[in-house]
Structures are given as C-alpha cells and as structure tokens.
Design a protein around this nucleic acid. Structure first.
Length: 828
RNA sequence: GCGAGAGUGGCGGAAUUGGUAGACGCGCUGGUCUUAGGAACCAGUAUCAUUGAUGUGUGGGUUCGAGUCCCUCCUCUCGCACCA
C-alpha cells in the first residue's frame, strides 16, 4: 500500500451498478439447476401485471425477495429465484383500443421495459426461466390441464347471472360495476343469464379448510381470512311440510335450539317453490309483482347499504315438524338463494333480522331461550336475544341448556326422519368464463350432435387469432371471428363451433410458480422430477390484497395438479410474507392523489442500492411503508459514509505505534454482536430495518475506533476484518455497493462467493455490565460491574450506593430484588 | 354490526422472556471547515420545571417493577358484511 489510490470522493453508483449488472447478465449469475447434494430454497415474489412500468410496491416486494435470495445463497442453499409476467387481462385490451395497437404488442413492449427496470434494481433472478402467461407455450399447458380437469369432472358449464352492459355490449366483472352502473359509460348494468364455465373448487372445500391449520408459516390474518371465505357452518337441515301440498320447504339453521320459537317462514325471491305456492291463488299476481320488484331492487342496490327488511305473505302455511304449529310463509328480500337452502325458519325472538321483519309486519315473537337471570317479554324486547340460556316452551327439550340442546334436537330430527345434521359453506365454485379476447382460450368445441367435446391434446394450443383489429367493445370478440369459431368436431368430424370464452386471468397465476421449476418442459406442463425437487415454494412474498383470491386458487390448483399426477405436494407455499403498502403523506400512492413516486427517477438520482436500502430500512416488511424523500437521502448518505471509510482504509492506514487494546476488543465485540443480530433479524422474521440499524451501529463503532497518528485505535487487522464482515452483512441488501467495496478492499472475488459470517458468542459478550439500581421501582443509580458479578455482590453494591442511600434515607428496607446481571430493586 | 391488527418524541420506527422506554435513521439546534454550501465532520435533541417530577391512546387492576399481562373505554387501518 505504497501509493495513494484514486477513488472518487463520492461513491459513483451509476458506473458501479451498471458494471455489476452487466457482469451478472453476461455470466447468467443466478441461473439455478437441480443439485441433489444441496438443499434447495425456492423464494418467489408475486409476479407483476405488465401495466407499463413498475411502481414502488414492486420495488419493495422485489427488494425483500432479493435479500432473501442472496442471503440464502450465502448460507449455502441452492436457490431458485425466478420472475415472469401475469400478462393476460383486460387493461391490455383497453390500452390496445385507445392506442390503436394490439394487446400482444402492448403487453410485450411493457414487459421489455419493466424487465429493464427490474434489471436496474439488481435483482438476482434466474432470467433463463422467465415467461409471460400470454406465451402460447405457457397457456397451451393450461389448456391441457383444463381438459384433464374436465375429464375428471372438475370443470362444468352452468347458466348463471352476469352483469351485462348494453352500451358496451359486454359482460362486466362485479368489481367493474359501480353503484349498479358500468364503470365506463355509466349505463345501468342488467342481469343476464349466460352459460359459463366453472371450476369445481368446492370439491376440495374440506381439504382447503383442513390444510389451513397446518400453514403455520402463513400470517394468521391470511389464514383467518381464508377460513372466513370458505365459511363453514354446521347445523340442522329439516323439512317444513307445506299445508295442502305434498311438498316441503327445506331449511338450514345453525340454531336448532331455537326451532320451537319459529313464528313464520322466509323464502328467497328466487326460491323454486314460490311459483307453485301461489299458483292459482288470488295472491298470485301480487306476489309475482313483489318478487320482481325485489329482484330488480337487489340489482340496483349499491353494495354498501343494507336495505330495509321487506316481505310479503304468500297466503300459504307450513308446519313446524317439532311442535306441529302452523306458520305463515313469506317472501323476504333479505333471504339469499345462494346460501343454505334459500329458506329460513324465522325466529324473531333470537335473530335480529327476523326480529326487524316481525316488528315491521306485526308477526308474533316467541322467546324460547331465556338467558340466566333474565326474562324475555315479547312486547318489551328492543332487539333479538342471541345469547345462550335455558330452553322454554320447547316441548320435551324445555329446561335444557340451549347449547347442549342443539345436538339433542338434531338427533331427534334425524331419528324422526324429518331432519339431518348439515354443514354448509360460503365458498362457491369458481366461474372462470370471461367474454374477452386477451385471455387463454377455453379449449372446447360445441358440436350439435356430440355436445361439448374437448379439443384433442395433440391439437393444443388453441391459439388466439392474431388479427390486430380487436375491439374491446364487443362482447365475446372471439365469436366475431369465423376463422376462429369454425372448426370440426373432434368426435364426429362434422362442422362445429369453438368455445369463445377465455379463462379468468387468475387461472394463469394459480400454477405459474410450479411452471418455474421447468419453464422449458415441452412435452408436459410440469416435469415431475424437477417440480419434485423445487416445490413447494419455501418463501412466497406479496401484497395482502391477494389473501383470498390468488392464494386460495393456487392452493386449489396445487391439489388438482397433485390429483392429476403432476405434483406430490398438497400446499404450494410453505411460508408466506405479506408486505404492507407503500404510502406517501399517509395515503396510498395514486395518480389522482398526485403522490406517486417514480422508481425510475429515484434510481437515476440515487442508484438502486439506495432505493433498496431505504425501502428495507424505513419499516418492517409486514407494515405499511411511509415514503420519505429525506429518508432516502439518509440511506444514500450512509452508503457514502461507508464508501469513504473503505476508501480511507484502503489508503495507507496510519496507526498509532501501539493500538489500543480496549478499543480493539470493543470493536471485536460489536462485530460479533452485529453478526448475531443481523443473522437473527433476517432469519427470524425478515426485520431488515433492525438489521440495517445494527450495521449502522457497527459502522459508527468502526469509524470511531480508527486509529490515527495521534490517537490509538483498534488494530488494523481488526478494522479490516470488521469492514470485510460489514460488507458481507450488507451484501444481500445493497449487492452492487457491497461487491464494489469488496474489490476496493483488495479481494479478487465477490461477496456472493463468501459464506455468511458466523459469530462467536464468547466474543459478543460484554465485559462490563451496567446495572440499574432502583428504589421502589424507580431508577436511582447505575453502576458498572464485571460481567461475572454475583447476585450477592450486586446486593451489597446497591445497598451502599451513594445515590441509592439518599432515597432509602431512614426508611426500613423491606425487600431487595436482584435480577441477574440486570438490576437491583430495593423496596422500602 | 362481526372478525383481525395497531395506537410509543416533531417524523419513520426500536425495545428476545414483565426489568435502563425512545436503538437506528430523518428533521431540528449549535459549532468546525469553507468564497459558499442543500457537502463533510463534531456536539446536542421526550416533556416540564435549572439538583427533581412526568411520560408508550383513556381509565382502572395485577406486580417489588408494566410499552409489554388482565379489564373498561376511545381512535385508526384492514377484512367480511343481511351467511340463517
């Protein structure tokens, strides 16, 4: 070290970052391949929709994933860290129409740009595995899976009600209907019955529910949300015979203990028995009008408001099988046909909705469950009583505890033959038909003679027609294209029509993580060996907004793919990290609020490492991150300080003739403490914010223990060793920076070729401890003692401490509490 | 309404198991160097009173000791929302 080196006074991130990015690119540095000798680690971030450019949420998400990937590589894992594009979807069609281009062109151009943005962030992806879901090489396999699901009865067609916009001539998704109107043209949407394709996710309801319990690597919140979504409830189903008819109304209740309190019956407007109930009676027209009115009203309802309870007597009665009482049958607007049986036994005394309805229509209220120490007077009740109690007016069950009575009542119904235990779910089958162009075509053919016939596997993929004249204003654009629609029946070779619906884009994202294990596999969707090696995903990272849909669908698909013989796992994601939003000025970034921060600008101004560092430092990953321009400045300043330290150190390092032994051990101690802390923080819960602050502390100690000609410091070897380790600890978060400074330190290799630093607990131990001395729980003094101090010594030191004595004064010492190596509390 | 989570300086946030509240960073204040500095470095920074008191949304409780545990209430965020 005889000559001064010539490093710039400021860290030149532009030159450094492009240098390392080029090197990683040329070397395919993060290419992964199966290696039976190494433990695999699959880390995945939710892939983006190629909307045009990445946003700060992506920056955060992918920075977190990259730290995990780089860290795990240094820990010796064989890491798979892929990236791709969730590339089908409506925005492409809208953009194509607006800019007079083709959805494919728009999408692939966006992908090219966004890929370059991700590369500028220095993310360590295996780019060899990249694919977009709109690649025919991807969706052809999805079509194959679809057909195999069809053959197993997991796919079916059903006529269902959709939101139709007459002006736009298209079907809208629920979220595209705002206050009952089309989001684009404000036309009121109307219900239309349409044939659509469904995935039988309900076939896996129990498994989806049961396996949730084993997902202990998932945030509880997400597990709870999925639990609620599946919505299991258990209870009794039983039949109420209709008077003057052979038919009966089936009800479902979770409160069989209240069944003696039934005073009327409520049916959904769509209930199939309604028509026959009023047929030929003088109420027929009136009831029919009412039904139409509430069905119409339902469609106009905004999702927010809860309408007033409305209903109408049908003129007919049914019989409560438990007590033979005759109860009037009503149609009611709050009963859902989709849930349970579409019929509700109404117990106004113990159900708030029934209560409101009874009050409005002057129906009797009959309490049958009396809570301990109360009485219930139907006249006086202000609301339904929903708490448990003792049964009254309940025949042979009177006197029983209401909870205990539930199973007895179900049993009784079962034995008598008019009821049975029943478990119902909220989860519905997944409607995947989209009447759009830019999606994966559903590989089916409609033949007049043979009905629905799958496209033969050897004819896959069913490609989207390439014509660029797509107009997204048409419903089912594919049906407008004779060249696409016209085909022959695979079974009988007669003329036939192709299915013109495309699949929901959530289908693509339900299995992409598996395809990353074998993106080039060209004879099967999933190579068994490769997916067996890489799957499941060890760590999945993404926004909590996908807690239900994407994550539930992926779990469903994993089970399907297992049953189709492709996978040997039941759950796709062992550990899940849901990161918070990036917000600014307390609000989510959005164009309308004008608080959007552009990653491109930031990277240009500060470099990728600074942006990464700040987004990791400003908050723990699961919390929302408040973006703060000055905070970014601070991150940049920190990196520059480290740069200058290394620069200075790699110059001839002047030390005092005798390094200071205390300084030296203090630095070593801090070093080992830092390794321990950073390792723990990353390993335990990805709390990079505290890991970074620990490295900052190490840096502060390091810069104050540099020796000079006039001041003794730590030994040069200790300093250089500490710098070296600090760079390794920083590497996963700021890889370009760390790699460059590693070379400045004179090493020929790179940090990523190093193993993660280890610590020595002995060296991390403090020699001196600060002991807090309290009197009556209040801190009165602090003393420094040797680390091996005994409790008895502490006690004596405390009782003779000058400051302590001032507060003990003449009072009697009642008790002395000694907490090992921490504090002494004197109670007077 | 139901369910979950969260309330700590001017700000973002720290605080393994109940044991020094406010780490680290931002901002701010003062200083050094500078023609200048929005650069860098040094010192300070919870609040109020100038030796002490008070402080983790509110009020209570348990404890020698509570940000941490229990109860009450308030506020915010998210999810579900007529689910029988």
């Amino acid at each position: 070290m005889s000559t001064q080196n010539t490093y710039a006074s400021h860290y030149d991130f532009k030159q450094v970052e492009s240098k390392w990015q080029q090197r990683w690119e040329v070397n395919n540095a993060y290419q992964a391949s199966e290696d039976a000798d190494k433990e695999k680690y699959y880390v995945l971030e939710m892939f983006p929709y190629p909307s045009g450019r990445i946003h700060m949420g992506h920056v955060r998400n992918y920075s977190i994933g990259d730290v995990v990937a780089r860290y795990k590589r240094m820990r010796g894992f064989n890491v798979l860290h892929p990236m791709g594009w969730d590339a089908f979807g409506l925005p492409a069609e809208n953009a194509a129409q607006k800019h007079n281009t083709h959805p494919a062109k728009w999408t692939y151009e966006n992908i090219d740009y966004m890929r370059s943005q991700l590369k500028q962030l220095g993310l360590s992806y295996d780019w060899q595995r990249e694919f977009a879901t709109c690649d025919p090489d991807y969706y052809r396999w999805e079509q194959k899976i679809f057909i195999e699901m069809y053959e197993r009865g997991l796919v079916y067609q059903r006529v269902t009600t959709v939101n139709w916009c007459e002006t736009c001539q298209t079907v809208l998704a629920n979220e595209q209907v705002i206050d009952g109107a089309c989001w684009r043209c404000d036309e009121l949407v109307e219900p239309r019955n349409m044939n659509g394709w469904f995935f039988k996710i309900t076939h896996y309801t129990d498994e989806l529910l049961d396996d949730l319990q084993a997902l202990d690597g998932w945030p509880e919140k997400v597990v709870t949300m999925q639990n609620n979504w599946i919505g299991q409830s258990t209870g009794l189903t039983c039949d109420f015979k209709i008077e003057g008819s052979d038919e009966a109304i089936s009800i479902f209740t979770t409160r069989p203990d209240t069944i003696f309190g039934v005073t009327f019956m409520s049916l959904a407007a769509e209930h199939p028995l309604l028509e026959t109930l009023t047929q030929g009676t003088d109420r027929e027209a009136e009831v029919a009008d009412f039904i139409n009115a509430i069905i119409k009203e339902k469609q106009r309802q905004s999702i927010q408001e809860e309408p007033e309870k409305k209903g109408m007597f049908t003129g007919r009665y049914c019989v409560n099988p438990f007590n033979g009482e005759s109860v009037p049958i009503y149609v009611a607007n709050f009963v859902l046909m989709e849930y349970g049986t579409g019929a509700v036994m109404a117990v106004p005394a113990h159900d708030q909705r029934d209560f409101e309805f009874a009050r409005a229509y002057d129906l009797p209220i009959k309490p049958v469950v009396i809570p301990q120490g109360t009485t219930l007077d139907p006249e006086m009740m202000q609301e339904a009583s929903t708490i448990p109690g003792t049964l009254v007016n309940s025949g042979q069950f009177s006197g029983l505890d209401s909870i205990a009575a539930q199973s007895k009542i179900i049993n009784f119904a079962w034995k008598q033959g008019f009821g049975a235990p029943l478990t119902t779910y909220r989860l519905r089958d997944w409607g995947i038909s989209r009447q759009r162009y830019w999606g994966a075509p559903i590989p089916m053919v409609h033949c007049q003679d043979c009905g629905v016939v799958p496209v033969p596997l050897e004819q896959l993929p069913v490609l989207l027609p390439e014509d660029p004249d797509t107009s997204s204003d048409e419903c089912r654009p594919l049906s407008q294209r004779p060249d696409f629609v016209g085909t022959v029946c695979p079974a009988c070779s007669k003329e036939a029509r192709r299915e013109t619906d495309t699949m929901d884009t959530f289908v693509e994202s339900s299995w992409y993580f598996a395809r990353f294990a074998c993106p080039d596999s060209d004879d099967t969707p999933l190579d068994k060996d490769k997916s067996a090696y890489w799957l499941p995903v060890d760590q999945y990272i993404g926004g909590v907004e996908h807690a239900i849909l994407h994550l539930l669908y992926s779990r469903f698909f994993t089970k399907v793919l297992r049953d189709l013989g492709y996978l040997s796992i039941a759950e796709p994601f062992t550990n899940l990290l849901t990161q918070g939003m990036v917000i600014k000025d307390g609000a989510k970034m959005s164009k309308s609020k004008g608080n959007v921060v552009d990653p491109d600008l930031l990277i240009r101004q500060y470099g990728a490492d600074t942006v990464r560092l700040f987004s990791l430092f400003a908050a723990p990953p699961e919390r929302d991150l408040e973006w703060n321009a000055q905070g970014v400045e601070g991150a940049s300043r920190f990196l520059n300080r480290v740069y200058r330290l290394v620069k200075e150190f790699s110059n001839p390092y002047v030390v005092a003739p005798e390094p200071s032994a205390p300084e030296d051990t203090a630095l070593q101690r801090k070093l080992h403490q830092t390794i321990k802390k950073v390792t723990y923080d990353i390993e335990d819960d990805f709390h990079f914010n505290t890991a970074i602050s620990a490295v900052m502390e190490l840096f502060n100690t390091l810069s104050s223990s540099l020796g000079s000609a006039t001041r003794p410091g730590a030994a040069p070897d200790t300093v250089s060793g500490s710098i070296r380790t600090m760079l390794l600890l920083l590497y996963p978060m700021v890889p370009h920076f760390s790699s460059e400074l590693w070379q400045m330190m004179g090493f020929a290799d790179t940090p990523e070729e190093q193993v993660w630093p280890t610590y020595d607990d002995e060296k991390a131990k403090e020699e001196l401890l600060t002991i807090v001395l309290q009197v009556n729980g209040k801190v009165r003094s602090r003393i420094e003692v040797d680390a091996d101090v005994q409790d008895q010594q502490l006690r004596e030191l405390a009782l003779t401490d000058e400051k302590v004595l001032r507060f003990v004064d003449e009072k009697r010492v009642k008790k002395v509490i000694v907490v090992k190596k921490k504090l002494v509390n004197i109670v007077v």
